[in-house]
Nucleic acid binder design. Sequence first.
RNA 1: GGUCCCAUCGUCUAGCCCGGUUAGGACACCGGCCUCUCACGUCGGCGACAGGGGUUCAAAUCCCCUUGGGACCGCCA
Length: 473
Amino acid sequence: MNRTIRVRFAPSPTGYLHLGGARTAIFNWLFARHHRGSFILRIEDTDKSRSTEESIREITESLRWLGLDWDEGPYRQTDRMEIYRREAQRLLDEKKAYYCYCTPEELEERRKRALEEGRMPKYDGRCRDRTEPRKGVKPVIRLKVDQEGETVVQDVIKGEVVYPNAQLDDFILVRSDGTPTYNFAVVVDDTLMEISHVIRGDDHLNNTPKQIQLYRAFGYKPPVFAHVPMILGPDRARLSKRHGATSVLAYREEGYLPEALLNFLVRLGWSHGDQEIFSKEELIQYFSLEHVGKSPAVYNPEKLLWLNAHYISTGDTRRLSHLLVPFLIEGGLIPKGKIPDMDWLCRVVETLKERAKTLKEMAQMAAFYFKAPTEYDPKGTERFLTPEVLPYFQSLVCKLEAMGHFEEEEVKAAFEAVMRKHSIKLKHLAQPCRVALTGKTVSPGIFEVITVLGRRETIERLKRAINFIRARL
RNA sequence: GGUCCCAUCGUCUAGCCCGGUUAGGACACCGGCCUCUCACGUCGGCGACAGGGGUUCAAAUCCCCUUGGGACCGCCA
């Protein structure tokens, strides 16, 4: 009992880290942290033609961004070729595996015919008892798989899953170029790395009986398996590029917070009663495989957006301000090299954090703080920038000029004085001001806007609006 | 074609293991309140046990079938 918990995340570096992979990584990480075990990162790069360094960087950066730290690795299967060679040789020596000289073309031909005739496209085992090599053909190594009986997968999530062995074929362990295939490398590595629990997508469930046969051939004890249901797109098909932005880093670029994506992903398939919002500490404390559901989940972006809005509105203002800077630069609101006044930026963010659903959106909403409106919203112009507000604006300018402290309380007092003088309600002054100062009919509270803009800029913009109204007369 | 997995509101899900709930929560949507606009917040509404058989006094819950969805069957992982 009480074996040390060791889990791994083992992506193949053939592209970016997508949401499904990220969630698998999260489950593994949470499981490890919950049990104070180890989380190991292993790169499954045995397919040299499709693996890239760029992809490895992208994956590790995605994990780091999500806050998933690993205790060992990244190990690379391409660094372990000697191990696979040794293990394969052992199986060969023990007559549990054999060389197969069938060419890919022949195999493809047979598969096609089997499919056409409605038979199962499995390898027929014709090289099992071959003793002589075939000239000019580099062989692969295949496992002798039991054709009788059944193989049982004990799965923490799916329960007991039984496979007829007749369904299995003598799958390839080592390719003709000497590199190991997935099913072989995964068993060798999980064993040698002493992985206690294999938590992965349930697209691997059907591979598991093969792997169990391999464990048996080796005489190794299989780990505990937990096959997590897939994440589906809105069309209920497996989530893929077709469904739009699915790379983790794309969410960063769209202005999502890592804690929002983490919270969102973990709730896709896992639950803790009715709770929706989880801190990282709570997730570690509560996470268990027992509460991972069995059915696939459809990815719904609205909920992610809601979570993101939640984490923005409750997030630390200074941190948000720093995270916002790249978006401000991208929006052309601040120059690239220059560091903005962070204290002032914090005040900007303070007015926006309850309204913005993403950092990208926040940057857009912040535009007016950096640039005076070059044009006014047509609807707002028509409704609020009317000749009758001229005296209000003029009074307000006077009051603002005469004010001492330029803080919300004083601005409010100035507004009240103007309202009294002209016998108008706040909305008759606030809305025209909003349009004058921001160019729009929607903005943060008018007193916040004014104090953040500052006296000089506010008066400047009011005067400009006065001129604009006069010019239209 | 074969094997395997899955099935509660539009979506994420609680409840299922250990039958008895007005089937709960969240997102989205709709309406009220709050209010200087928007948003937040708050109150309310809409909305589900895929279908059919069993077992049982009683089934979302246990069993079977059907249907629907998904995965795998590669010298990809």
